[in-house]
């Protein structure tokens, strides 16, 4: 870092852009989309079918919504130097709660509140373990990760039947409906994004999270209540996972705790990391996290349209993670630089 800043004066705007943290993820997204254009000539085509927009670009955004929602919350938790492995389980629990309350005959708006409330409660649980009891985040959230899907199954079994399906105009409207040609869930995602952005950037919460993640004891001595801030991050993460739960559950209109949102925690963490935040905490890049989620979905979509088997997706994702992480590692950068300088000679 320091060697970069020393040459500050000799750098033009071009190198400033090249070195900006946002540049590379956005370039990566563009490259993926451009390559897609070569693979499939009508990739960029957007049609109107049955009163809504259709097309690959819309589809990428549409499918990226759950990951993006979870990743927004994850970005805050990672900002505190933590991690939340339980988001998939939280989604499963939310789905079960929705299905349960529908069978109990609540109004759909109340059901929505129930589902989000369930997400918040899960966040409170994680927050108590991490901030209250001081258990390492990865361990503390493992507990809910292991048992959460079981809790979902249990809620289902309260009123009999496994994977009960349901109909809910409100929730399905939010998930699969559309307003003015645009899928409703994009509005939901935008609203959650905006809400969280306002919450962290229009209050001091974001700064405090970054301070706690950067150096918890410094933050504490500076007067920041590190425990409370950490707790709050997990609660917000639970809420975001709750929203993702609503969208995903309404999409498949059934509660399927075992297989819903499998590996979503990994995608969400990946999105945050691709967005430029370090797992060592201390920074939140909310906008770039969305870009990260879009990159992940764009990769998946490209593999689909390229005719490769969808299963290659996992390997591609892994290679992307490794590549991003290697770029973040000083040792690896040095090794690569040495190799290059040898090649030049």
């Amino acid at each position: 870092m320091s060697d970069i800043s020393q040459n500050n004066t000799s750098m033009g705007w071009f190198s400033a852009i090249i070195r900006h943290r946002s540049t590379w993820p956005i370039v990566a997204l563009c490259v993926i989309l451009i390559v897609d254009g070569f693979i499939s000539p009508n990739f960029y085509e957007i049609r109107i079918v049955q009163g809504r927009l259709f097309g690959n670009l819309i589809d990428i955004m549409y499918r990226a919504v759950p990951t993006a929602l979870v990743a927004i919350g994850m970005a805050l938790v990672i900002g505190t130097k933590g991690i939340d492995l339980s988001v998939g389980s939280i989604i499963a629990i939310c789905g079960a709660v929705i299905s349960w309350r529908i069978h109990a005959g609540d109004t759909h708006f109340v059901i929505l509140l129930y589902a989000l409330g369930a997400g918040v409660m899960c966040g409170v649980w994680n927050g108590i373990l991490v901030a209250g009891m001081g258990i390492q985040p990865i361990i503390a959230t493992l507990i809910l990760m292991v048992s959460g899907r079981g809790v979902g199954l249990l809620i289902n079994s309260l009123y009999g039947g496994t994977n009960p399906s349901f109909e809910s105009p409100l929730l399905q409207g939010l998930s699969t409906g559309h307003i003015w040609l645009i899928p409703t869930r994009l509005f939901v995602a935008a609203a959650v994004f905006l809400g969280i952005w306002l919450l962290i950037r229009r209050t001091a919460l974001g700064l405090f999270i970054e301070a706690v993640g950067g150096n918890a004891s410094s933050a504490n001595i500076a007067g920041v209540n590190a425990r409370f801030i950490t707790f709050l991050a997990y609660v917000i993460c639970g809420l975001c996972a709750g929203w993702a739960g609503v969208i995903m559950t309404a999409d498949i209109h059934t509660s399927d705790p075992i297989s819903v949102a499998m590996y979503i925690e990994l995608d969400a963490i990946l999105a945050v990391v691709i967005g430029g935040a370090s797992l060592a905490g201390g920074r939140i890049y909310l906008g770039m996290t969305i870009i990260g989620a879009l990159i992940i979905q764009a990769l998946t979509t490209s593999i689909l349209i390229s005719g490769l088997r969808p299963e290659y997706n996992l390997v591609v994702k892994a290679v992307v993670v490794l590549f991003v992480l290697l770029l973040q590692s000083a040792n690896a950068r040095q090794a690569i630089a040495t190799i290059f300088s040898r090649l030049k000679r």
Binding site: I269, L279, E311, L314, V315, A318, L326
Partner: peptide, 23 residues
């Protein structure tokens, strides 16, 4: 060597091997 958290590295390992299965 790269000082990457084990969690993330082995997560990549998880993806690679599972993807390998499908291949």
């Amino acid at each position: 060597y790269c000082k990457i958290q084990p969690f993330i590295m082995t997560l990549a390992g998880l993806f690679i091997l599972r993807g390998g299965c499908f291949m």
